[in-house]
Design a binder for these strands. Structure first.
Lengths: 241, 241
DNA sequence: GGAATTATACATACGATGTACAATTAATCA
DNA sequence: TGATTAATTGTACATCGTATGTATAATTCC
């Protein structure tokens, strides 16, 4: 029955009326993610977050212990949205690639959170954990010893995160560490950087725009091939012939 | 001759007496680096920095336009200290490895700055630029086309930065993304993560401690081998036999 | 039903931060 | 010398995270 309350959640302290939907960790993180996605990390403050929720800033602290918790909560939310194309049955190389694409996709869909994702991912667990499962499953089939599997997995994750971070912090479809240099190379004293000059001049102007998709594919190729090689070496050492 | 001034730089506004050493961008960045290295990024504030320099907070703004400039200045300073073991004459594989070690060494010697290094490196230039020269010089010898050289270089840098970031944000000699999971795997619902469980149980307890040096070497090996493979493929495609 | 307890939200306030603005002083140059 | 410029300081403001205390509605227990 229509309670003539007027604006929802405006005046009056205390516990909310049963009719109104209560403040939730989930609602808070949703609002926070909208702010960060839309206006960047710098726009996220407790006061702004509270304002968007139509709530007093201190109310948030009842559901999350502080701003740090909000931010790492965001990372968790984002990571738990990781979806892989089902790739069971495919050779391990394809499954590793699928994982890498999924991981990159997460960072790419929230570029303003990239820094936090990359630097907090290790501490967030749960979502990250179950996210890594298919990667380990794939790498098991290389026949590498467990210790090397872990290191290979880490290497791949490190690459993906490094790449995604660079991708996120550049103007969309813009440059990368390598290509960013191009503009400055021209203004360098003579032959301070001869190899760089040679490479980028050979690229010409059309090559200057960095294609992130292609760059990612090359990096991924390098890693997968490299893993193939050390796996083959390991196998040869066990059964020398 | 002894000017009876007592404490150096204490009282009195205005331009400093000619005798005293003036405030400099360099002195500011030195002091800032000491704070960050010693007490972490959170301890760096303009007021604290000024206090350490025996100076009014606003004085800093005459030499650097703001706090952001201080931080990215720090990254520049740190990067310009990059030193490679001379590796000219060695095969390109060794030279790529030497670059990677030098790059990692920089981040590792200032772990509290790791996040800023990794996320600002692309925008700092100059030091980063001339630092990357030997990497490009080495990769030129692979015979890969320029575009692929850039992508391979980026991939290697991305890996190194991703690795270094993980290394820096973990307790010294502690765990990594992969190994961090170990502790939580045990507390997971049954077989939610079977491959992870298998791999880490096979590792046993002794393998749980992550050896960053060995991990880095494996990753580097994967990348170098991978580059070898795609270089060989490219050569075969040009001169098919 | 009424009283005690607990969950949730609000109000106020404190210390810290980055920095805009303007005044102050000393070196430098005409 | 007087004018100009470079370097420093002092004050003040808006904003931030959050500690602390209070108010009120829902829930629980008798």
């Amino acid at each position: 029955m229509g309670n003539g309350k007027g604006e929802a959640r405006r005046r009056g302290a205390g516990r909310p009326r049963a009719g109104q939907e209560p403040l939730t960790r989930e609602r808070i993180l949703d609002a926070a993610l909208r702010i960060v996605d839309g206006e960047g990390m710098g726009a996220l403050s407790m006061r702004r977050l509270a304002a968007d929720l139509g709530v007093n800033p201190m109310s948030i602290y009842h559901h999350l212990p502080g701003k740090d918790a909000v931010v790492s909560g965001l990372v968790g939310v984002v990571f738990s949205g990781m979806r892989m194309l089902p790739s069971e049955g495919l050779p391990w190389q394809e499954r590793v690639r699928a994982y890498a694409h999924a991981h990159r996709g997460i960072v790419r869909s929230h570029p303003n959170l990239a820094l936090q994702i990359v630097s907090n991912a290790a501490a967030v667990s749960e979502a990250v954990l179950s996210g890594a499962e298919p990667l380990y499953g794939a790498l098991e089939e290389t026949g590498l010893p467990p210790k090397t599997i872990v290191r290979a997995a880490d290497s791949l994750v490190d690459f993906v995160q490094g790449f995604s971070l660079g991708e996120a912090s550049n103007p969309s479809g813009g440059f990368d560490i390598g290509s960013e240099l191009l503009a400055r190379i021209e203004t360098q004293p003579a032959d301070n950087v001869p190899a760089l000059r040679r490479v980028f001049e050979a690229l010409g102007e059309e090559g200057a725009r960095y294609d992130f998709d292609a760059g990612f594919e090359v990096g991924l190729d390098i890693l997968v091939r490299g893993i193939e090689v050390i796996a083959a070496e390991g196998a040869r050492r066990e059964r020398p012939g």
